[in-house]
Write a protein that binds this DNA or RNA. Structure first.
Lengths: 236, 236
DNA sequence: CGGTTGTTTGAACTGATTCAATCTGTGTGG
DNA sequence: CCACACAGATTGAATCAGTTCAAACAACCG
């Protein structure tokens, strides 16, 4: 019953719009989109940026989803953060400890740190904007720690689904689930086998209905409860 | 065989020094320590700051250790971050999703956001300094996610011990372990019962030796391997 | 069609939890 | 100085959630 991701990325919304939607004042978005940059198409689950390399570049997701990941010496992979359209990965002076891969085929705008940093420094409002975004990602990271540390496997998957629905701005209705079960396992610290069983469970309990990759929430209140999903942390 | 934390906090090192030790230029530390503030003694494992409350204050740890925590609706607690001496918790515009408690008796310097923000905005170098600190805490958070998501219980505890030794600047020798087993459980997403068994295991394997709370690393290389501890992420 | 990637299912196993009891060290007050 | 209370550490037994290994199945692609 597996369905495939669409082969083309979602229509490339202009970056400026997505940034403004994320809360940046329109006149501030302008110098950012005017910054010299290239746009790259990134294939899912292929090496894109390896860990341990210095990265003096900014990237913003225009469409698709990027993930930051780390790999244990034993080879087990853990995804530690996601970036949805309009979100970005800021420059990193020293060596980075994480790698980057796309979850689905994505369009990414890449600029150089030496172009980006002066722009931010020149606009205190933009500093505050990025400050707020960092804080939001921090809050999400904390929530993920609670997820991995304290919830059982059903709660973890349910929570990820709720969060994803919220971050993709689909309400409590249908979610076009972008993840493979392996990726969900890598995010929630489990095995893909178990993720599969959890999905079957959720469906058997009548909380969701699946048509291929698409997920329909049949009982939003109850799945929120199972996930103990309190969306407050997502509002910067 | 339990020993108690010393009843007095570690001698209150001047904040300026600890900030400089953390990499801040001495002339930049000055306006920070000159900022109007109060110094508070915080008792361990007592309510200090509750989640869900706006917090327009900065705090810097002068001695002891602070923890940020979240609590699941089911009442299970997860510690999501630690702050050692010289480290701080920056102001938070909206409602905070986490609470704050001390791990051991701590001295904390508390200032107001409205005093702190202008100082930072006036000094680009200080912005870069805090930027780097944020990045470091982000990296630690990612490593914690790997810890909770991908390591077994021995690896988790061993990793926390290694990280703590590094952050407290004790080399590979003796660590005056500041945590109760319950706190270690709350950090690593386990039960205190299991943490206890892990400690017994580590000792039986000859990796550590315990005298009350004090831990002596008998085989640093091997415990690093067990923990898959790569300290690179700690260097901002 | 054959190759690849992702999903699904079963059976055996194991690491960690739960519950409950006991033990140890520390501090307090009589 | 002893009795007592308290917090934390330790141990055992039963249980269970999640892993591991292995195999089959489905969908898509060239």
């Amino acid at each position: 019953m597996a369905s495939r991701r669409s082969k083309a990325p979602a229509p490339g919304v202009p970056l400026g719009e997505t940034l403004v939607a994320a809360g940046l004042a329109p006149e501030l978005a302008e110098p950012l989109v005017a910054m010299p940059h290239k746009v790259v198409e990134v294939d899912p689950r292929r090496p894109f940026r390896e860990p341990g390399v210095p990265r003096d570049e900014v990237m913003f997701v225009r469409s698709g989803i990027l993930s930051k990941f780390k790999t244990d010496p034993a080879g087990r992979r853990q995804i530690v953060a996601l970036r949805f359209p309009g979100e970005g990965i800021l420059p990193h002076a020293g060596r980075t400890d994480y790698g980057i891969q796309a979850i689905v085929r994505s369009e990414v705008m890449i600029g150089r740190a030496e172009d980006f940093d002066p722009i931010v420094e020149a606009h205190p409002d933009m500093q505050r904007f990025f400050w707020r975004l960092i804080r939001r990602h921090e809050a999400i990271g904390y929530e993920w720690l609670v997820n991995c540390g304290r919830r059982d496997s059903i709660g973890r998957v349910a929570h990820l689904l709720c969060e994803t629905a919220a971050r993709m701005h689909v309400g409590s209705g249908r979610l076009n689930n972008p993840f493979t079960q392996q990726q969900i396992a890598d995010i929630t610290g489990q095995t893909s086998v178990n993720v599969n069983r959890v999905f079957a469970d959720l469906e058997r309990q009548g909380l969701i209905k699946r048509h291929g990759r698409e997920i329909q929430f049949k009982d939003w209140a109850e799945i929120r409860r199972v996930a103990s999903f309190q969306p407050g942390y997502l509002e910067a």
